[in-house]
Design a protein around this nucleic acid. Structure first.
Length: 479
RNA sequence: GGUCCCAUCGUCUAGUGGUUAGGACGCUGGCCUCUCACGCCGGAAACCGGGGUUCAACUCCCCGUGGGACUACCA
């Protein structure tokens, strides 16, 4: 058996964690857990202008919230650190020197304007825009002149005219022609390593065996393989999964609506549901399973089942899963997860009787699609939130309703015992006294009691409300 | 424009030469029921097109068409 697989998730802290990235992390994590390998987290923060510490903190929080625990990375130093690229700059410098010594790189003094000009000219002549190697042929003297003029060079890799092939675990045999690729920058003029350069070095040094990432990196793979060859590093196995798409089939982005893990969390999506959905999207689990626990997902995961074509993000299916997870969530647990949403909806839960509130949540949790909806489901139990809807008002105005509500209230006035018994007896009494049954019997009571025409089973609502609160609500209609 | 990738119900997918093309979301009919939801039982809904290969193509090959990604001193 070969060494255990090592995979990594390498985000750059330049924004909120996107669900697409979360899915990449999930695939890597499931792969590692399934195979008993290591899941490494590396922060790619070489773009100083876009990276921010707050995003990094956010990133770690979101991953933790999702339950994607890493074996090595920030806050969990291992044998291959440091795990932030900004702390590995000396490593990149050494490797640049190595390539310089082998004459595989050269300094480029072109300005952005010059490069842009070249690009436009190539596009106009209908050719692939790429760097044509102007500075490759510079003499030592010319270079000294540029340096003397104060120009800071970037460093470009001399792309060989070869064909680069690799076997993608998801896509099969892939092939790229070196002739179509211009000499690319590996170190920027500010001294920072460029993405393709840093990943190759880090993935190799960190012992990464499988690079699992989005399809948007497919063409980068050719460049990276060139660098693996240049360094004499054995390339890892690559696997490029499909992208998550918006409704219009383009790469999912902000303009499509909610796209970050944080947004879904705020909307009251459970991490288990989001994980489950992301694992299902653009992939499938063995035996056609769709609702799986974390452990089941790990067991049923297989990279071979990842599909090659992009998958549209379907929020409705996410919500379907979320409702299932809410329903199956133990009420005790659910109550605590609900806290932030209750506060936001204006419920002061610390003054409530916990046993009573537990009953409330237990009763309404089947109706919840997201945690954020909780307020509009429990308001029927709070006098300060309670209100009669137009529909309920119509029910109560019906001629047959008034006697029903009156009779029901009348019975309650003298009733004693536990709420369940009182309710049953009150219904019986009302039925006998008014001769009304079925819908015409229950709906007026429901409307008067909850202010709604829909809701949980009336007997349970009554039991939670209690006799006195019920009587209060009935009063305006019974007099 | 160039390079590369992809193509089964509206959506997510199963399917690896012979199936009534299966499942799920959503939609929809019914049952359950005081209502909504849940649950259960049904229904409508797909192999992009054209050529090959083969006794036989959703499945293999080619060409179209369509969609997507990349095309930065961002990752």
């Amino acid at each position: 058996m070969a060494d255990k697989p090592r995979v990594r998730f390498a985000p750059s802290p330049t924004g909120e964690l996107h669900v697409g990235n979360a899915r990449t992390a999930l695939f890597n994590w499931m792969f590692a857990r399934h195979q008993g390998g290591d899941f490494v987290l590396r922060i790619e923060d070489t773009d100083e202008s876009r990276s921010a510490l707050s995003y990094q903190v956010n990133l770690l929080n979101d991953l933790t919230w999702l339950g994607l625990d890493w074996d090595e990375g920030p806050q969990k130093e291992g044998a291959y650190g440091p795990y932030k690229q900004s702390e590995r700059l000396d490593i990149y410098t050494r490797h640049l020197q190595q390539l310089e010594a082998a004459d595989l790189v050269y300094p480029c003094y072109c300005t952005e304007e010059e490069l842009e000009e070249e690009r436009q000219a190539l596009i106009l002549s209908k050719r692939m825009p790429r760097y044509m190697g102007k500075c490759r042929k510079l003499t030592r003297q010319e270079r000294q002149q540029k340096e003397a003029a104060g120009r800071k060079p970037s460093f470009r890799f001399k792309v060989p005219d070869e064909t680069f092939q690799f076997d993608d675990l998801i896509r099969g045999a892939m092939k790229f022609e070196g002739t179509a690729i211009g000499d690319f920058i590996i170190v920027r003029s500010n001294g920072m390593p460029a993405y393709n350069f840093a990943v190759v070095i880090d993935d190799h040094l960190m012992g990464i065996t499988h690079v699992i990432r989005g399809e948007d990196h497919l063409s980068n793979t050719a460049l990276q393989i060139m660098l693996y060859n240049a360094f004499g590093f054995p390339p890892p196995t690559f696997a490029h999964h499909c992208l998550i798409l918006g409704r219009d089939r383009s790469k999912l982005s902000k303009r499509h609506g909610s796209v970050s893990v944080g947004e879904f969390r705020k909307q009251g999506i459970l991490p288990e549901a989001l994980m489950n959905y992301l694992g299902l999207l653009g992939s499938s689990f063995t035996e056609g399973r769709e609702v799986l626990s974390r452990e089941e997902m790990i067991t049923a995961f297989s990279l071979e089942r990842a599909s090659k074509s992009g998958a549209i993000f379907d929020e409705e299916k996410l919500h379907w899963l979320n409702a299932i997870y809410i329903r199956n969530c133990p009420t005790e647990d659910l109550v605590s997860r609900l806290q932030p949403f209750l506060e936001r909806a204006g419920y002061k839960t610390d003054t409530l009787d916990p046993v009573w509130f537990h009953q409330v949540i237990d009763l309404i949790k089947n109706d919840l699609t997201t945690l954020a909806e909780v307020g509009s489901h429990i308001d029927i139990f709070f006098d300060d939130k309670f209100a009669i809807t137009a529909e309920a008002g119509q029910i109560l105005e019906k001629a047959s309703s008034c006697p029903v509500v009156k009779a029901f209230a009348e019975y309650l006035k003298t009733a004693a015992g536990n709420p369940q018994e009182i309710y049953l007896a009150a219904i019986k009494y009302t039925k006998e006294k008014t001769g009304v049954k079925g819908k015409d019997l229950f709906m007026p009571i429901r409307a008067a009691l909850t202010g709604r025409v829909h809701g949980p089973e009336l007997d349970k609502v009554f039991a939670i409300l209690g006799k006195n609160a019920a009587l209060n609500r009935l009063k305006p209609f019974a007099d």
